[in-house]
């Protein structure tokens, strides 16, 4: 019986070592390639030649486009258009990774903290640079909200600074933890079924219907979480961009 955490194991498929650095093509890399191919293919093939009246396949890229475009316009405004391709790529990449990871035996690359952290720290650094480029040293006033007494600022500035610096961690851990928890829970519940059979025989196998039903329900929930976490990641990226573009 495989343990509940074994599904997160990295397996090298094609060993590649360049200059002593291991950049092997792994199961994680394979899923990243698949996710990019599915997301890019869906957008590119879906739009096709671009009929005036869209068919079912063409509606997929159009609706995803409109959805993320509306999201950025609502949060950042007109200046957000420049960051639209980035936010859409983040959304689609994480969405595809989360959903493809729900396929049995597939690997979920968003369940690896290094992947989510790399995305989050890149966004964090990019947004911070953007803020300083647009506002210079004025960007530091982000940590001092207006309309607050000077004595309060003594407490507020460290809190604001902390909440700002913790952004890449909260952003990456949120996605990572959601994915790990969901997949682990499913695996643990699935493990109950053979355990019941081994322990109680056919009676145990009959009782095994209960964890199976629970897994079925939780799979639905996990699909929801897969979409929701991709959405949350994209929304938070938009909010960070907005902070950098429009200093309050």
């Amino acid at each position: 019986m495989a343990g509940p955490l074994e599904q997160f194991e990295i397996q090298s498929l094609i060993p590649i070592v360049v200059g002593g650095v291991d950049i092997s093509f792994t199961n994680s890399a394979a899923m990243m390639v698949l996710a990019s191919a599915v997301a890019g293919g869906l957008m590119l093939l879906g739009i096709g030649r671009g009929a005036m009246v869209p068919g079912r396949m063409q509606l997929v890229p159009e609706m995803l486009y409109q959805f993320v475009a509306d999201l950025i316009r609502d949060i950042v405004g007109a200046e957000g258009r420049r960051y639209f391709p980035l936010v859409l790529t983040i959304f689609l990449f994480i969405l595809a990774g989360n959903l493809l990871g729900m396929i049995p035996f597939a690997f979920t690359f968003t369940s690896h903290i290094i992947v989510t952290f790399a995305l989050a720290i890149t966004i964090f650094i990019g947004v911070t640079v953007l803020g300083f480029v647009r506002h210079g040293a004025h960007y530091l006033t982000l940590f001092a909200p207006g309309g607050v007494s000077k004595y309060m600022l003594i407490f507020l500035i460290p809190i604001e600074l902390m909440s700002y610096l913790v952004r890449p961690i909260s952003l990456s851990v949120r996605l990572f933890a959601n994915m790990v928890a969901g997949h682990t829970l499913l695996k643990v519940l699935a493990g109950f079924i053979p355990a019941l059979y081994v322990g109680l025989g056919y009676a145990g196998a009959a009782v095994g219907v209960l964890p199976l039903a629970l897994i079925t329900a939780l799979t639905g929930l996990e699909l929801l979480i897969a979409v929701l976490q991709a959405f949350v990641f994209a929304v938070l990226t938009c909010i960070y961009i907005n902070d950098a573009v429009h200093l309050h």
Partner: peptide
């Protein structure tokens, strides 16, 4: 290192295509 490398490659490719 391998994961970051492939993340950059695949994310970059997707970004470029989009």
């Amino acid at each position: 290192i391998s994961q970051i490398f492939w993340l950059i490659v695949t994310f970059g490719a997707l970004y470029w295509v989009l």
